[in-house]
Every structure is written in structure tokens, then in C-alpha cells.
Amino acid sequence: MLTRHQLYGPRFQRVFPDIFLPASAPLDLFTRSRAAYLLVRDQGGALVGYSAAQLLDADFAPANAQAEVAAPRFMYRPRGLRTCGDRIEAADLVQAHNCRVTTPVRTAWDLARRVPLVEAVVAVDALARRAGFEPTDLLDYRAKHPGARGCRRLDRIVALADPRAESPPETRLRVGLVLEGLPTPETQYEILDEFGFLLAKADLAYPPARLAIEYDGRIHLERWRWERDRERDTRLAGYGWETLRFGHNDLRAIHQTASKVRGLLARRAPRPS
């Protein structure tokens, strides 16, 4: 239906060998992962790591993440594809979006053992929240696979994990504060009025100091959301709560962010009467 000249022309883009997309199609990780699956489908391969997480509808991969597959060791590895030769048992595989992918627990296990600490906690939080497993399930999985590379760090990762986090930046902020020496804040803390009615739910909170912490993504820059956030902050201030709002740049400067939180905690700490 297409000539080679047409396929390599401006109407299409090459993703991997013999796999093409329309030139206008967005080439995000989800699409690249499905394309990568076509390379290993007939050999019994599967999507793993960030690709598996993406197809399990847990979106937390870095912007530059490569598609990842478990494939035969003799497979040609094209540019832009990460491959692993680990043997994946049938019990560790599920179907997602018509592709074989590792289960949520196995995906969290794979990522937690190799990515940086904060991103490992992000992976566990996101997958555990999406799939409904407990972070401690990773320790049970480790007991069945003793001696696996990187498995010793799971104790710390599980201790830092909290699936109640509703977004990866929220996890990054929480873990960043803890690694800077601050107490672990409450996650998704419900602030109630004197009658027990819900005033707000804070991303993070230090209830004794009545300090709420919010991570503001891009949507919070829209005028309607900005006005609603300020209205909520004013309402909470009437009940003695102070709200700190942080964004992407504050995550990159986590030391300064933690210093600001530390200073407010010291000033707002309950004093003995």
C-alpha cells in the first residue's frame, strides 16, 4: 500500500526499524513503548521499567526516559531503546493496552533497585496508589528473590514511601524535605473546622504548627485556579493555618525550600503555656 519512498518521506516518521508513525503523531513515551513492544512481541518479550509503568497508567517517567523492553539477549538494540535480559516469570506479567507488561509490583521492584532514591520513591508511590498494593509488598517480593542487585536499598525506599501522594511532584517535595532533616509531614491531610466539616485537604501538613504545604503545578497558574487557591488560603488563615506554596523551581532548590519550612516550623511550634 506504500512504497519505500513514501514511507521514508515527509508523511511518516521512523520510530524503530520497520516501525513508522504518521509525521504528525506525538512521539511520547506511551507511543514509543507500544512501538517497542512490536519488536519483541513475537519473541515473548515484554515492556518493563518506565514503559511498563506508563502502560499501567502510572505517569511519572522523566521527560527523557527511553522505551524499555525485556528481550532475548541476541536482539538488535536500536537507538532509543533500553533492553534487559532478565528472565520474567509468567506470574510477573499482565496485559495492558494490548501489550505484555510487568505487574505493578514487579515494575516497582525493577525501578526501585536502579533509579535514584527520590525517583525510586516516586515510582513506588505512583504504582502503589494506582494498583492498590502496599509498599511493604516489595519486601515480601525481595524475600522470594534474595540477592538481586540493588535490593538492599528497598528498606529505605519503603520507609519513605506513601501511596496517599496524589502526584509525583508531591512525593518529590515530601521526600526532599525529609532528606533535608525535617520531620515527615502528613500526606493529604484533611483540615476540619470546629464542627468537623472539611475546610481543605493539604498536599502536606504539619498539624501541630498548623502549617499546610501545597505543590502548585501548571494548572495553578490559570487565573480561575489562582483565585480559588488564594480564597482557600485566606479561609484557612482564619482558622490559624498558614499555607506555603511551592513549584517546580522550589523542588530544584530543595535546600532553600527546606530552610523556609524549617524556619516557619520553629516560629509556629506550639509553646508551653
Rank of each mutant, 00 (worst) to 15 (best):
L265Y: 15
R164K: 07
D229H: 05
D229Y: 09
T3L: 04
Y76G: 03
F74D: 12
T234S: 09
P169E: 05
E180N: 14
Q188S: 12
L81N: 04
A52D: 03
V261C: 04
A159F: 01
L192T: 15
A65V: 04
L27T: 08
V261P: 00
A128M: 03
A148R: 15
G263D: 07
D250C: 06
A159N: 14
L192G: 00
Q66E: 14
Y8M: 11
P17H: 07
V124Q: 00
Y215V: 09
Y50I: 00
V69M: 05
L177K: 03
A266K: 08
A63P: 05
R223H: 15
Q188L: 08
L211N: 10
D92R: 14
L29R: 02
R152S: 15
R82N: 11
L265M: 11
L264A: 12
I19R: 10
I219W: 11
R262Y: 07
L199G: 04
P183G: 02
F74M: 11
A96L: 08
P183D: 01
T187F: 01
H97Q: 15
Y50V: 06
K260G: 05
A108F: 02
G132Y: 06
E68R: 08
R271W: 15
L21C: 15
T171S: 14
Q43V: 09
V124E: 08
E119W: 13
R223A: 10
Q66H: 07
D193Q: 06
R100H: 13
A70I: 13
P10F: 07
V118G: 03
C99Q: 14
R164A: 13
R87G: 15
P22G: 14
T103D: 01
Q256K: 05
R268S: 02
T136E: 05
D162Y: 04
E222I: 08
T171N: 13
T234G: 11
A131G: 07
A143C: 08
V261K: 14
